[in-house]
């Protein structure tokens, strides 16, 4: 299976958006999308962690787990790599850029349990991506997730003063907006295709 990294990058953003097509990272997507600023901060943090940990996990999988025949440990190893990297990032940011830490710090623990991060790691193994493909796929996925949460935050700000049925406020209306966004993104399918 040889898809060029370029195609994979665009496909991960538009036709196979990690959130709108594969439903990954919904929990923090729904809860941190009230303000555009915090949505942007979280989105950037997720995209960054996604790219670095996917690359690390690829190396760990093909140079440690696979040669030793212990691939069944991949879930535990992947989640340890992700948690350790997030912890490390937290220390570094706190030490060198306190300003960034105060705006981003609260999101960092949330990132470990964001399904999008582990999800991309599992997708790259199942689809047997090469290292370059993995980089492109994870960069596209991160940007796609950032795009989705920014769009939702923008729409929710406009909705604040609008009349929404009482039972639909909060999660309900966010899900309907997301559904409409997903419907819109189906319009991109056919431009590039991955599977």
């Amino acid at each position: 299976m040889e898809i060029s990294a370029f195609v994979l990058f665009w496909a991960a953003i538009f036709t196979g958006n990690i959130l709108l097509t594969y439903f990954l990272g919904m929990c923090s997507y729904l809860s941190i999308s009230k303000e555009i600023e915090s949505a942007f901060g979280l989105g950037i943090a997720v995209a960054f962690v996604l790219i670095v940990t996917s690359a690390l996990n690829w190396l760990v999988y093909y140079y440690i787990l696979f040669p030793f025949g212990i691939v069944y440990l991949q879930y535990i190893v992947f989640i340890i790599v992700i948690a350790a990297f997030v912890q490390f990032l937290e220390l570094v940011i706190e030490r060198y850029t306190p300003a960034l830490y105060y705006s981003l710090g609260i999101f960092l623990p949330l990132i470990t349990v964001n399904c999008a991060i582990l999800g991309v790691g599992l997708f790259m193994i199942i689809r047997k991506y090469s290292f370059i493909q993995t980089l492109a796929f994870s960069a596209g996925s991160g940007i796609g997730w950032l795009l989705a949460i920014l769009m939702l935050a923008g729409i929710r700000r406009k909705l604040k003063e609008k009349m929404v049925p009482a039972g639909l406020r909060g999660a309900g209306i966010s899900l309907i907006i997301t559904g409409i966004m997903a419907l819109g993104f189906i319009g991109f399918s056919g431009i590039v295709q991955i599977q």
Binding site: G167, L168, R169, G172, I176, T178
Partner: peptide
């Protein structure tokens, strides 16, 4: 496809909120 899942879950939450929790 994906969109229907979002819509159905939203409807379900709406119905539950209105008739089970009686959100006003």
């Amino acid at each position: 496809m994906a969109p229907s899942a979002f819509f159905i879950l939203a409807m379900l939450i709406w119905i539950i909120n209105t008739y089970y929790y009686k959100v006003k």
